[in-house]
Design a protein around this nucleic acid. Structure first.
Lengths: 341, 341
DNA sequence: GGCACCCGCTGCAACGTTGCAAGGATGCTA
DNA sequence: TAGCATCCTTGCAACGTTGCAGCGGGTGCC
């Protein structure tokens, strides 16, 4: 019984198409008996509204795009899950697009694609989009940025306070007696603002504590993957600089890579070197040692981002982009406290 | 310049709407000069086809649904990535739905949801759907099953040969001198066919090798999560049964959980107990020790599943569901060979 | 008893696109 | 020059739905 239309239901129930529509949408007042008759016809014919036609008529598709670099990076898949769940609660469907960290693809998806036009809004975790791109082809739908910002862009932005978080991590490491801290993950170029904020927090905490900071202990990483964490850690150990007694990685994957290198070299974590990550992905609760990390409130982040996006969609008010912050907390695990505390 | 329609382009180019449509779609023969004029107008107005209207008219939405239990389980996010990529290559857009392993939700999504009607096809990684559900409300779009089967259902099914894979693992463990093998992940009930096939392979290999199998060494797991792997491993060690010298986990997450338990108890892997997983998720290349595992060809799986689904969509031929197999291989890493081989 | 009002229901048109089939122009041949 | 084929272009209708405005009949009020 698939493919029945409003028309068919109307015929069966002996009412007009419009009335069926009203019943289905709960719009206008409909007499109880009529409603019942229509509902029975809907049941019998297994009628399902054609979302396409409805969207076309209404001018809204009920679809949101979630644009992320890579879906199989745990942070993004956990975020995607939260967002899909939230979106469903708000009656929206989410389409996920992957940019593979490619600037061109990102531009394409947001700005030019014909598919872009069908979305009521976009949640974007930008990697390479610059303000210049935006001003050139300004997109027609509301966009909310997740995590990474785009400087001087007219978009709302939801993230945690990266400077504070990094400062907390650093202060915590000092507080447990570590003195030579390394940082893995700096990205000193335009599209790496998040990383830069973390470096900033790292630096600020050093200054506040009146500790010296050896620049060789800050290692850059163009991508936040496990393999890069391993590479960076090796570089740190073999680079000829001072050996740190604690390492702060800008995300958990980097830390996993770093951990692997340390363990394979017989370095004890945390006895010889303490380790801290960022994101609190499920994976690092099960590493040995389990990983101390910063846990952003992902659920809240999804909630806020969606709330904001939907607000923009409904009001069509694109003015005064806002910076929204989501709370985070430091979760202490074995990689900084094994056997102690 | 957003929101321009075929009509606007036609007006600007001084041709009929129909001709613009022909140019945009590359349909009928169009004179070079006309084409050029239209294309310029398209550029100038930044025209983008309205996918909704097009879909409505054509009777195809160009959207596929990917239904998975949990997007943040690495196997599924890696699979999702592959599928989204493949779908894009074929001109399709993917919408991901999560069932959270809930039977009701799964039923809802596939069979009743009004949104279901908008998809041209569905890729389903079933958890709890039974043949009874299907026959009751048979869905109107083609469905291809990924991984888990639904017994006696009329759907194509793409998966690896689980029995062979499990047998290979088991034979491999025997070949490196292990004698008391445990298996974690059995699911001896209707919706656990995949797990049962792995158990079957595990058993068959024992029989072929004429080894005895202590039933206490087969531990069930309703969900394939890290925490369950940990629980199962603890049960194995504390259960009073024989202590295994090798453990075969039915997926990598279970193995990660088991590994954590072993390491925290001071058990050496693989010296005391060897460990094998299943799925080859990125994560287990970086555990210490790295994990020996079965690697299904996920890219090929996505490819095959999509090819099959698109075939069904295009032919509207729902007859003779097929069983398609994807190759796999055993990847040997440290968790079975540390220091040796 | 008449009038105004409101409830419940309806028809028409349109959202932006494409399928169909015919229309018009052009060039070539006889 | 007429006739025909070819090539390009077009108008109409429809996909399934909802916005709008309006219509008829019943009810309440004066």
């Amino acid at each position: 019984m698939s493919g029945s239309r409003l028309r068919d239901v109307a015929a069966r129930a002996g009412v007009s198409i419009r009335t069926v529509s009203n019943v289905v949408n709960g719009y206008a007042p409909v007499a109880a008996t009529t409603r019942e008759r229509v509902e029975r016809a809907v049941q019998e014919l297994d009628y399902r509204p054609n979302v396409l036609a409805r969207s076309l008529k209404r001018g809204r598709s009920g679809m949101l795009a979630l644009v992320v670099p890579e879906l199989d990076v745990p942070y993004f898949s956990e975020l995607a899950r939260a967002i899909i769940t939230q979106a469903r609660l708000n009656g929206y469907t989410v389409v996920i697009d992957q940019t593979d960290g490619d600037a061109g693809r990102e531009r394409e998806l947001i700005l030019r694609s014909s598919r872009a036009a069908v979305f009521d809004g976009v949640l974007l975790s930008p990697v390479a989009l610059s303000a210049a791109d935006i001003s050139e082809h300004n997109p027609s739908v509301p966009i909310v940025l997740l995590g990474e910002r785009i400087a001087a862009s007219p978009f709302d932005h939801v993230a945690i306070d990266n400077v504070s978080a990094a400062r907390e991590v650093t202060e915590y490491l000092f507080s447990i007696g570590r003195r030579r801290l390394a940082a893995i993950g700096d990205q000193p170029y335009e599209t790496g603002e998040t990383a830069q904020l973390r470096t900033q927090g790292f630096r600020e905490a050093h200054i506040s504590a009146a500790r010296e900071l050896d620049e060789r202990l800050i290692v850059g990483c163009p991508h936040f993957h496990r393999s890069e964490g391993a590479r960076a850690m090796s570089a740190l150990l073999d680079g000829g600089g001072p050996t740190p007694d604690a390492v702060f990685c800008y995300n958990d994957l980097l830390a996993v890579g770093a951990l692997r290198v340390m363990l394979s070299r017989g370095i004890r974590v945390p006895e010889d070197i303490a380790l801290v990550g960022f994101d609190d992905i499920e994976e690092v609760r099960f590493t040995t040692p389990s990983l101390t990390t910063i846990a952003p409130d992902k659920t809240r982040l999804a909630e806020l981002a969606l709330q904001r996006l939907i607000l923009r969609i409904n009001t069509q008010d694109f003015s005064g982009p806002e910076e929204l912050f989501v709370s985070h907390r430091l979760i202490v695990r074995e990689s900084t406290t094994h056997g102690r505390q």
